[in-house]
Amino acid sequence: MRSTARVQFTPPAPAHDWLPVARPHMPPASAIAPYLDHIDASRHYSNFGPLVCELEKRLAERLGPDAHAVTASSGTSALLLALMALNLPKGSVCALPSWTFVATAHAVLAAGLTPWFIDVDAETAMLDPQMCQTVLSRAPGEVRALIPVCAHGAPLDVEGWAQFQARTGVRVVVDAAAAHDSLTEAPFPMAVSVHATKSLGVGEGGYIVCPNADFALRVRMLSSFGFNGTRESQMVALNAKMSEYAAAVALSAMDNWASTRLLYQQTAFKLRIALKDVPQVQFQEGWGLRWVSSVCVVRVPQEALMPLIAFLKSHHIDSRQWWGDGCHTSRAFTDILRDTLPNTEHLAATTLGLPYCATMDDAQVARLTGLLQSFFQDA
């Protein structure tokens, strides 16, 4: 029987009227408890236990009978494992957008590949397969892999990228960190994060979905010392497995995914409706209508960005430039080769994350949207 003793601590109290830019939506302890009981009974805590296997089965089933899923310790390790599983020669050039979170570039470097930053489409904020085929002619070497990023959870042009891979022979691996909801198929490896900040919140973890059983097995071996049924290490690998405890939270989150998704969608509807007459605030295409994520990322006029951030802060409302000035500007990546990045630079000057969460109430929506209306009316 589990102890009911609680560790007592007092977190710092935020200002009572401060509206944060994001608030995780995680399963409550009561929903996770039955899975913890299962762990207590099985005494299986890691190494692809029954809960991890059940989670992988359920994740794969979402994408159809031919999909395979492998869990990982984080979204970054999921992307790293997918890149390692390509088995490309060390130093191979891997193209990636600079308009992404830094984890994308970290994974490329950790996989022993040579990253090359390229520009995204100005409208979608994502790599475009037709544009990329043209860009390849300017590469610093033969591009062997390419990573489209699902910007803030937006859906991918799956057919376009499948055609790109077939035409060019360049291996496509998708950074779908925030795109749990928008994934509908996996013709190539896609790495998803289930960090607490994501729509399917687990705390820390990730998963890879792919169409090939052999590739999935290679990913699994790479996540577990190169083992495959024996204690012999068959390849240089990592320890990047998901624990049974993380799987317990993930299964609980999956159980409640329909209601969680609805909460995110309802809040998105409220924001869209309240700001329908404020054309200066542009939502991502389809956000809250066809797909959901755990963040609200909008475009605003370039001259308004910094004044708006200051204005919101003066009213105790948080905001965030999610990807800063682009990945290429981080100190860790200053020596990485890059193509010209005009669209990335424009996105950095016009993109802002606004407060948004699954449990955002009507008063918070009204407060935020009222201030946005006031700001742009007076601008």
Rank of each mutant, 00 (worst) to 15 (best):
M1W: 13
F9K: 03
A13T: 15
D17A: 15
W18N: 06
P20V: 11
V21Y: 05
V21E: 00
A29Y: 08
A31W: 01
A31N: 03
D37P: 02
H44W: 14
Y45F: 15
F48R: 10
G49S: 08
L51C: 03
L51Y: 01
V52H: 04
R58E: 13
R58A: 13
R58N: 14
E61V: 02
L63D: 01
L63T: 00
H68W: 09
H68T: 11
A69L: 08
S73Q: 06
G75L: 12
S77A: 15
L80A: 04
L80Y: 03
L80S: 00
L83H: 05
G91C: 13
L96Y: 04
V108W: 00
G112W: 06
G112Y: 08
L113Y: 03
T114S: 12
T114P: 05
W116R: 10
I118Y: 03
A122W: 03
E123S: 12
A125S: 10
Q130F: 09
S137A: 15
S137G: 10
A139Y: 07
P140H: 08
E142V: 14
E142W: 03
A145N: 06
A145L: 05
P148H: 03
V149A: 12
C150H: 04
C150M: 11
A151M: 08
H152L: 15
H152Q: 12
D157V: 10
Q165P: 05
R171C: 08
V174L: 11
D175M: 09
A178Y: 12
H180C: 14
D181I: 01
D181Y: 01
A186H: 00
T197E: 12
T197M: 11
S199I: 12
E204D: 05
Y207T: 08
C210Q: 04
D214H: 13
R220F: 04
S224Y: 09
F225W: 12
F227P: 01
N228C: 14
E232Y: 06
M235E: 14
L238K: 04
M242V: 09
S243V: 04
Y245Q: 15
A258I: 13
R261K: 07
Q265N: 06
T267D: 11
F269P: 00
A274S: 07
V281E: 03
Q284P: 05
Q284A: 15
E285R: 08
G286Y: 10
S294R: 01
S294M: 00
V295T: 09
C296D: 01
R299Y: 06
V300C: 04
L305Q: 06
K313S: 13
H315D: 09
D318M: 05
Q321K: 10
W322S: 14
G324M: 05
D325I: 10
S330P: 01
F333G: 02
T334K: 15
T340M: 02
L341K: 02
N343K: 11
T344A: 02
E345Y: 06
L347F: 10
T350A: 08
T350D: 05
P355Y: 05
D361S: 08
D362S: 14
A366H: 06
L368A: 07
T369C: 14
G370A: 03
G370M: 07
L371S: 00
D378R: 13
